[in-house]
Nucleic acid binder design. Structure first.
Lengths: 213, 213
DNA sequence: CGCGCTCCATGATGTGGATCATAGAACTCT
DNA sequence: AGAGTTCTATGATCCACATCATGGAGCGCG
């Protein structure tokens, strides 16, 4: 199963079974906390089934989702690398099974295997670029932020995205109400349709146009 | 001189002279462009004298400064690492001398020297955390963003920060007018003082309080 | 010296989106 | 089936900030 995970793609079968042997599956019910921001980073994680949201809790009880992790995606390699505490909270957004890879196993690999280091570095650069991109859409209006969020989600889920309006709002950095307003406007314009708990993209092209300039 | 640069700190004298030999100094007048976003990344840069701003140009002619680089700081290691184009524009904010280290020299070092790889990775993690932190203050009010900007600048310049209000505004992601309004308010509260082209922090503690919760 | 430029400052007005309030629709659990 | 809960929806109000407009203060330059 590790084979399908980007960062572990080029491990040898032997390394993979060794890694798997050191790791444990863990089950979380919807809404449970996988780890909290500030916790010491003692593991790298891979989603097996379900969905995990990485999120910040801001003062005033608002929550901002920084990233939605879906099956075969790994997260929190950074804290593992520099041995700093987790910078975000990880919450199971649905019933979820994750693989917990102890940090020791990760470092073990890093030291033995220069190819792995390369791959890790690659994943890493990718992530940095993502974050930088996200941070510069700080100034964009809500519609564009939502459009972007939907597009990146469609990369993970396909054209039908199984998130509630509330979750979309948290991801776009806005409130449920305005998210709903914007989305129903897009619905009127036939760019997407939506039902309880999911929205589906009808015109990806139009959405991309909104997302860009 | 390379000795003072964080990422090159642990090079041997021999490596440093070799690196220096492959590099070139380059001079830019105030306002000149060092490189543009989208250009292929063919070098890593170190500021020798002056000041370089990394910035994005948004539609509508607005500019956002993502980072202010001062002497002994290196920038654009990321593009060098993953061989992707520069993600930002680099503009000389004053008359400036920079050291231009060709990407080949950088990769050469990476391959030969595992200690260097470690250091590079460290600088890198640091940067990722910075960016993530910045991106989550998306929701903060202007006053807090400005306070944060001033504090990180005071780490580079000391208590007196030689930037115009306009530059501060670009760094805090707001307009000159509101930056000026907020700053003059802080001035009234004796937290800082300012003159043409510079502002100095009088009460770092008070500023930190504004910057946090 | 006077002209022009950049920087600073402050007031007037407009607006995107948060907040508050309310309510119906759909799903869940007993 | 009924009760509670989550999700969706929409209207009314409010506010932080952008935008527009204008004027003055410091500084360089012909």
């Amino acid at each position: 199963m590790l084979e399908g995970v980007e960062i572990f793609k080029r491990l040898t079968p032997a390394e993979r079974t060794r890694l798997a042997a050191m790791s444990r599956e863990q089950r979380f019910a919807k809404g449970q906390t996988v780890f909290r921001a500030g916790d010491p980073a003692d593991a790298v994680w891979v989603v097996r089934t379900g969905r995990v949201h990485l999120m910040k809790f801001l003062e005033g009880g608002q929550a901002a989702t920084t990233c939605v992790m879906t099956p075969r995606e790994s997260f929190c390699c950074l804290p593992a690398l520099d041995r700093q505490p987790y910078p975000v909270n990880a919450i199971a957004a649905t019933d979820t099974v994750v693989l917990r890879i102890p940090i020791a196993a990760f470092h073990d690999l890093l030291q033995r295997n220069p190819t792995f280091l390369e791959d890790a570095l690659g994943v890493f650069c990718e992530r940095l670029r993502q974050v930088e991109h996200k941070s510069c859409m700080l100034y964009d209006p809500v519609e564009r932020r939502l459009a972007q969020a939907l597009l990146t989600l469609s990369g993970k889920f396909g054209t039908t995205i199984p998130l509630t309006k509330h979750e979309l709002a948290e991801l776009a950095g806005t409130t449920v109400e305005t998210a709903i307003r914007v989305l129903s406007d897009l619905k009127k314009r036939k760019i997407l349709s939506s039902s309880r708990g999911s929205t589906t993209i009808l015109q990806p092209a139009a959405l991309e146009q909104l997302a860009e300039a």
